[in-house]
Simulated assay, not measured.
Amino acid sequence: MTKTLVEMTAEIIQSQISTREMSTDEIKVALNETFQTLKGLQEAEISGQDAGDDENKPVMDPRKSIQRNKIVCLECGQEFKMLSPKHLKSHGLTSKEYRKKYGFSARQPLCAKSLSERRSKSGKERGLPENLRKAIAARTKKKK
């Protein structure tokens, strides 16, 4: 007996839930995305088209990839606290190329918002902004 797309989707998501904790919203999104992907693959198979036509398409909207407690790699869909240069290298990209490819500014940190905020707070506690202003002022005095 052949399984329906709904049955296959349910099995895939059940296996994901058994390996990691997911919220209700994450489960709903995963069900919808998995079903749509399976549906697209089925339609491509029926029509004889190549399913890999959208290789350059990111796995999600780049604006939504940087979240509070995670960042989603737009190349493969993996979740991290921070996108490391080592991981980006596995996709043949540098941080600069990744930012340019997906429209991020050059100053956008490639890490979860909570991690970025923690680093900023820690730097301010150590007096980095003040020390930076002093160093810049000292450099401009030397040039004159």
Rank of each mutant, 00 (worst) to 15 (best):
A30E: 04
E45P: 00
A112T: 05
E130W: 14
Q67A: 15
S18C: 08
V6D: 15
M82Y: 12
R133W: 03
S116I: 01
C76D: 14
I12H: 15
E11N: 08
P58C: 02
T37M: 05
K144S: 11
I46F: 03
R99G: 06
M60N: 03
Q108K: 11
C76L: 06
R133G: 02
K141G: 03
D61K: 13
D53S: 07
I136W: 01
K143V: 08
D25I: 07
D25A: 05
V72K: 15
S15A: 15
S84E: 05
A138S: 06
I66N: 04
E21W: 05
I13W: 09
L88M: 08
T9R: 15
R133F: 07
N56D: 10
T24Y: 12
C111H: 06
L93A: 03
S15P: 00
E45R: 06
L93C: 02
N131Y: 10
M22D: 09
Q42S: 13
M60R: 14
K144A: 11
S120C: 04
K121D: 01
T9G: 12
V29H: 11
S105K: 11
R139A: 15
M8F: 07
T37L: 07
M60T: 12
K144Q: 08
L115Q: 04
E130V: 07
Q14N: 14
